[in-house]
């Protein structure tokens, strides 16, 4: 079973869990995700892999309680089990295929927004360990929503925290910080942005001003996560792609963000209904 061996509350709404899933932990690579179900009635919820421990056979996930399903996940306690955990899914970050000497020449800037900090962590860690230069811009609404600060500090050269309200670090958006750093002549060779779709859209506009190569990780709707349903369709470079099997990471400059945001909201009205109501025979 997929037992929760450690649970840590990172903020009032964000929970970290370390879960037993030995095969998954052995196969996981930076950039990939997994799918969990909290119980028998549960939705299949895609979550990014925040960390993996091959020896212990565990993976770490971070969940923000927003909808009914994510609240259910966050309510699980240490020692309890997920009904299902499956993965790793999607393609690993394209940079894991680079030879180490190439990686050592690279200078990454990761832009993490909110919960996006979780999937940025294993990438920053991996590339930092391989000897690349790694800076991280971590954005959150306010100080209490900044997560994994200590962990992140340990795996990067510079950590820049930004909050919308200025309660911690730089007051302002991650795009302003990125602009500032670029103006300082940081000379990044690659940017990776992971966070809300709207943030990734604006990071793309900012990075574009500096011709900075940028990869984004798309958190689209998904059901199976293996290419079977097509709920995750995104337009990239004018072509329809399945984020679950061809992504989740894509070249930011080719992504149709407006379409992706619209598609993400397809079931939002439904989720707001307090309880799922039976629809059989409706309208007859």
């Amino acid at each position: 079973m997929y037992r929760i061996v450690r649970k840590e509350v990172l903020s009032p709404v964000i929970t970290l869990m370390e879960v037993e899933a030995p095969r998954l932990a052995r196969a996981a690579q930076p950039g990939q995700f997994l799918i969990v179900r909290a119980d028998e009635e549960g939705e299949r919820i895609p979550l990014t892999i925040c960390d993996y421990n091959r020896e212990k056979g565990t993976v770490t996930i971070v969940t923000q309680a927003i909808g009914a399903s994510s609240k259910e996940i966050c309510a699980l306690q240490e020692g309890e089990c997920f009904t299902d955990v499956v993965g790793p899914l999607g393609q690993p970050s394209e940079f894991v295929n680079l030879p180490d000497e190439e990686l050592r020449k690279m200078s990454f800037v990761f832009i993490a927004g909110g919960l996006g900090t979780a999937p940025v962590y294993p990438q920053a860690k991996y590339f930092h360990e391989k000897g690349a230069k790694v800076d991280v811009i971590l954005g959150a609404k306010s100080a209490d929503l900044v997560i994994l600060e200590k962990e992140m500090e340990a795996v990067c050269d510079n950590l820049y925290i930004c909050t919308d309200d200025g309660s911690k670090g730089f007051k302002g958006l991650v795009t302003a910080k990125l602009e500032e750093l670029m103006a300082q002549g940081k000379g990044y060779t690659q940017a990776v942005a992971i966070g809300p779709m709207i943030m990734m859209k604006f990071v793309t506009l900012t990075a574009g001003k500096f011709n900075l190569p940028l990869v984004v990780s798309l958190n689209t709707l998904m059901v199976d996560g293996t290419g079977m349903c097509g709920a995750c369709r995104v337009t990239v470079g004018g072509k329809v792609r399945f984020a679950c099997v061809e992504g989740p990471e894509f070249n930011a400059y080719e992504v149709d963000f407006d379409e992706a945001m619209r598609r993400q909201a397809m079931y939002r009205g439904k989720e707001m209904e307090e309880d799922h109501k039976c629809k059989i025979g409706r309208g007859r």
């Binding site: 549960g42 397809m266 039976c278």
Partner: peptide
């Protein structure tokens, strides 16, 4: 698979 037609199932369906 996700039993969206059943009461109590969490997965939404848009009809």
């Amino acid at each position: 698979l996700m039993k969206a037609y059943k009461e109590g199932a969490r997965t939404p369906i848009y009809v």
